[in-house]
Simulated assay, not measured.
Amino acid sequence: MSESLSLLLVEDDLSLNEELGIFLSDFFDKIDSVDSAEEAYEKYLTSTYDLVITDIQLPHQNGLSLVEKIRKKNPSQMVIVISAYKEVDYFLKSIDLGIYSFLTKPFDSQLLINTMIKVTNQLHHKHTPLESSMVSLHDGVSFDLKAKSLFVNGVLKELTEKEECLLFLLVKNANTFVRNEQLSQAIWQSDEINNSTLRALVKRVRDKLGYDECIINLKNRGYKLTAHPS
Results as ranks from 00 to 15, higher is better:
residue 1 M to L: 12
residue 3 E to F: 15
residue 7 L to K: 09
residue 11 E to R: 07
residue 12 D to F: 09
residue 17 N to I: 01
residue 17 N to Y: 01
residue 19 E to Q: 12
residue 19 E to T: 14
residue 20 L to N: 02
residue 20 L to D: 02
residue 23 F to W: 08
residue 24 L to K: 06
residue 27 F to K: 03
residue 30 K to R: 15
residue 30 K to V: 14
residue 31 I to E: 09
residue 33 S to L: 08
residue 37 A to V: 05
residue 38 E to L: 10
residue 39 E to N: 12
residue 40 A to K: 02
residue 44 Y to C: 02
residue 45 L to H: 07
residue 45 L to V: 04
residue 46 T to L: 07
residue 50 D to Y: 03
residue 50 D to Q: 04
residue 54 T to W: 04
residue 54 T to H: 05
residue 56 I to C: 01
residue 57 Q to D: 10
residue 58 L to T: 05
residue 62 N to T: 09
residue 64 L to V: 02
residue 68 E to P: 00
residue 75 P to V: 11
residue 77 Q to G: 04
residue 82 I to Q: 09
residue 82 I to K: 01
residue 84 A to M: 08
residue 85 Y to D: 13
residue 85 Y to V: 08
residue 89 D to H: 13
residue 90 Y to D: 08
residue 91 F to I: 14
residue 93 K to T: 10
residue 98 G to L: 06
residue 101 S to Y: 12
residue 104 T to D: 08
residue 108 D to W: 06
residue 110 Q to M: 13
residue 115 T to R: 05
residue 117 I to L: 14
residue 122 Q to V: 03
residue 125 H to W: 11
residue 130 L to Q: 12
residue 136 S to D: 11
residue 137 L to M: 06
residue 138 H to L: 02
residue 142 S to N: 09
residue 145 L to M: 12
residue 146 K to M: 10
residue 147 A to S: 11
residue 150 L to I: 06
residue 151 F to S: 06
residue 153 N to K: 09
residue 153 N to W: 05
residue 154 G to I: 07
residue 161 E to C: 03
residue 163 E to F: 07
residue 165 C to K: 13
residue 166 L to M: 08
residue 176 T to C: 08
residue 178 V to C: 03
residue 180 N to E: 15
residue 181 E to Q: 09
residue 183 L to R: 03
residue 186 A to G: 00
residue 188 W to N: 02
residue 193 I to D: 01
residue 195 N to H: 10
residue 202 V to S: 00
residue 208 K to W: 07
residue 210 G to K: 03
residue 212 D to L: 09
residue 212 D to F: 11
residue 213 E to G: 08
residue 216 I to E: 11
residue 218 L to F: 13
residue 218 L to A: 15
residue 219 K to I: 14
residue 220 N to E: 10
residue 221 R to E: 12
residue 225 L to W: 01
residue 230 S to R: 07
residue 230 S to F: 09
